[in-house]
């Protein structure tokens, strides 16, 4: 073990940390929150555009990102933290897009945002599962 740590340090800093179930759960929860946010502001029966509701929901999702980032920062693994920051960037793209419209998304607009969002999270989840000691039940 001492040798592995030495070689890691020799290679230039922290190595990739092992699979962490909580990190995987955090990314899955962020995906659900992000997609629910898009759905919440999509045209459907009895749904109306409310700026206050938009701001409130946006803050709630941002808080989820903050918690996930804080958790990732406890594990000395820059790529894990970086991926959550990148996912947060995709959320900011979506919320800016919706905010500028100042109305609910059409079905097609919503589909385009949701599909690209889903695929980014799938890559981040696959990145979690690329780590050593992954739990088979939590990875495809």
């Amino acid at each position: 073990m001492k040798n592995i740590v030495f070689i890691c340090l020799f290679l230039g800093g922290c190595c990739i940390s092992a699979f962490n179930p909580q990190s995987q759960i955090n990314v899955m929860n962020l995906k659900d929150s992000h997609l629910a946010f898009i759905s919440e502001f999509t045209e459907k029966e009895n749904n109306i555009w409310e700026l206050q509701k938009f701001e409130t929901q946006k803050e709630l999702v941002n808080m989820d990102f903050q918690k996930a980032l804080e958790h990732s920062q406890t594990m000395c693994d820059k790529l894990r933290t970086k991926n959550i920051e990148l996912l947060r960037d995709t959320f900011q793209e979506d919320e800016n897009n919706i905010r500028k419209k100042d109305r609910l998304l059409t079905e097609i607009e919503s589909k385009i945002l949701s599909n690209s969002t889903s695929q980014a999270y799938e890559s981040a989840l696959a990145a979690e599962c690329a780590r050593n000691n992954k739990m088979e039940g939590m990875c495809k």
């Binding site: 990739i16 790529l79 990148l86 960037d89 385009i112 990145a127 780590r131």
Partner: peptide, 25 residues
Amino acid sequence: TLLRKQLIHAQIEANKSAIEVQARI
């Protein structure tokens, strides 16, 4: 917006590849 998201996604993919290689190392 889609293109900017795809550029961000590309970075996540690149990180995934880096993680796969480092995990194997």
